[in-house]
Amino acid sequence: MNNSKNEQNITKELSTHILGMLVNPIHTMDWSIKKLSKKCTYILILLLSFLYGIINVLLMQNIAKTAFKYIDTIMGNNYIFGLINKRLMYEIDNYMSWSKIFIFEIFLFFISCIIIFLTTYFIFKYVFKCDIRPLCFLQVIVSSFVPFIFYTLLQLILSYISFPLSLCAVLIGFILSIILFFKGLCGCTNVPQDKILMVVPISYVVMLIVDLAIIKVI
């Protein structure tokens, strides 16, 4: 009975937090710093990683199909090229391991969160000599990614209509996440905002470098 009640409480907390980050992100970010539970934070990381993996696989599949359709349109009724194009589509659909891509995207998202966390923690702890709560940083990072995942989903939907619009959607999500990350760090520490403003791009640059290195190796 207690386990069932705890699960309901976590589900309610999680759904309320996600909805709040989409509807009223600034207020919800302040709330998450003070009240978001550790368990809910960990579940949110796993949930966002899973969603990121699914969305990116579907997005890649749509991009591949759209590219081949565009090539078909350009080449017109060229019979030989049409056969080659269809063969390539068959190879992609049947031999490209979408499951491996899905797992890789989950891994990449998870690693991105960890890299931002470690970079931020190191700077505040050892450069600014600031007393911090590691969980608070993790809550800020994960919460700031909620709008990004939502806009990534919007990117997927818009990609079936217009690729430029889909790119605008993910760009808006990325900018919003950076702003929320900054606001969250301001609420976590007493460090002046001008110093925090330097930490945000450093954390993201380190994340991008590590992500690119992993993609290159794999």
Rank of each mutant, 00 (worst) to 15 (best):
3 N>Y: 11
5 K>H: 05
5 K>S: 06
6 N>H: 11
8 Q>W: 09
8 Q>D: 12
15 S>T: 12
21 M>E: 01
21 M>D: 03
23 V>A: 09
26 I>E: 15
28 T>C: 04
32 S>P: 03
33 I>W: 07
40 C>K: 03
43 I>H: 03
44 L>N: 08
52 Y>D: 10
56 N>W: 12
61 Q>W: 08
62 N>H: 14
63 I>R: 08
65 K>M: 06
71 I>Q: 03
72 D>I: 04
81 F>A: 12
83 L>A: 08
87 R>N: 13
87 R>V: 01
88 L>H: 03
90 Y>A: 06
98 W>D: 03
104 F>T: 05
105 E>W: 03
110 F>I: 12
114 I>H: 05
119 T>H: 02
122 F>C: 11
122 F>K: 03
124 F>L: 15
125 K>Y: 13
125 K>F: 13
136 C>F: 13
140 V>N: 07
143 S>D: 08
145 F>W: 11
154 L>A: 09
157 I>C: 00
164 P>T: 05
166 S>H: 07
167 L>E: 13
170 V>R: 02
175 I>T: 04
176 L>N: 04
176 L>I: 13
178 I>D: 04
179 I>D: 06
179 I>C: 12
187 G>I: 10
190 N>F: 11
194 D>P: 01
200 V>Q: 11
202 I>G: 07
204 Y>W: 13
205 V>S: 07
206 V>Q: 00
